[in-house]
Design a protein around this nucleic acid. Sequence first.
DNA 1: CGCTAATCTAGAACAAGTTACAGACTTGAT
DNA 2: ATCAAGTCTGTAACTTGTTCTAGATTAGCG
Lengths: 209, 209
Amino acid sequence: MTADNRADLSPSAPALTERQEARRRRILDASAQLAARGGFDAVQMREVAEAAGVALGTLYRYFPSKIHLLVATMQDQLQHMHTTLRKRPPAGTDPAERVAETLMRAFRALQREPQLADAMVRALTFADRGVSPEVDTVSRLTTAIILDAMGVEHPSPQQLSAVRVIEHTWHSALITWLSGRASIAQVKIDIETVCRLIDLTAPEAAPRH
Amino acid sequence: MTADNRADLSPSAPALTERQEARRRRILDASAQLAARGGFDAVQMREVAEAAGVALGTLYRYFPSKIHLLVATMQDQLQHMHTTLRKRPPAGTDPAERVAETLMRAFRALQREPQLADAMVRALTFADRGVSPEVDTVSRLTTAIILDAMGVEHPSPQQLSAVRVIEHTWHSALITWLSGRASIAQVKIDIETVCRLIDLTAPEAAPRH
DNA sequence: CGCTAATCTAGAACAAGTTACAGACTTGAT
DNA sequence: ATCAAGTCTGTAACTTGTTCTAGATTAGCG
């Protein structure tokens, strides 16, 4: 729909060689695999290094901290998801419906690997200033997914605020579910509730009904 | 308004002696002080223990992890805030307005000690299942504050969902501000945006205007 | 090819959260 | 007052994220 956003995720990266690209991939895969097994705590830097067949120092050269590594893992997974979602766009007629459907679909995908989700989301919210650029990339990806579902090309400031609020709710609801403090049903309700904001901020839309 | 919620925060606690109460207080104060200075990283268990005049093992007996300690610190601070807010309730006529005002007031309070806020919020979102009861207590306190601002005694399920979404937004917006990825103005806008959900879920209210 | 700079490896070392333990001190009941 | 049980202290050890270093390997270039 809009431009392809695969190539320019890290325009500052100084062009890796093939072997380096392969190392990076092995590291990300090892990270995801360990995370899927035992969550945040199971992603131990020494183990990631060993599983990826790479020295500890090298791991740290590629990802300067465990948080960086997990946020990058999340980037990677989100990319998959975005691609998948684009293949089968949501069916609803209402933007709010479509966004809710998209998010619940993403949610069900995460449910399949709850430990991986746990590791990624915990890393994301724990990240401090030093990881801001990477976290921002994840945020932009999420925004892109939501705007895609809304079917909006040039969102108004109000719409952007609504999207941010939806993202906030998405992350936070995910956390409460992952830590066992909310049921899936509750997450669904909350997502649907927040998505009502979209109707409220549609620039041209008539009031509901 | 409703019942006093000072006494029954931890009904499971086996009644501490006076000296133990004092120890607990010294620990919480030390924690808040160190956090205010240098944020999450500056709250080092050995330092907290020393500042509180308590052995490391004792600190761990009172708070079984750094996360527990910081979540308890947040409980403590929230309690203060709730008391303070009750003294001067928000002035707006609209529930949504009042909630937004209340949250922005809380936000400005946190701004005064951004490092402390950082430590507490990071701990809160990083907490895993093992800390659920404590995190839940914080959540109930926050809910109470918001319901107070709304002026609602017996909220409907829709209202409770809206309150949850507001809480989600509150936490997550706080995090993005603390990690420098959003401005105060943006936080304000997002809070105001999400508060519009309140009008949407008022059970008796006429549609807006 | 042969050189130089960058990268990678293996492993030690350090930092802070957490656990373990032996001995001193408190508390509560008799 | 005394005893038993529980608590607190001081300290060492263990774990895992992170840093550091010396030597091997690789990549790019003349």
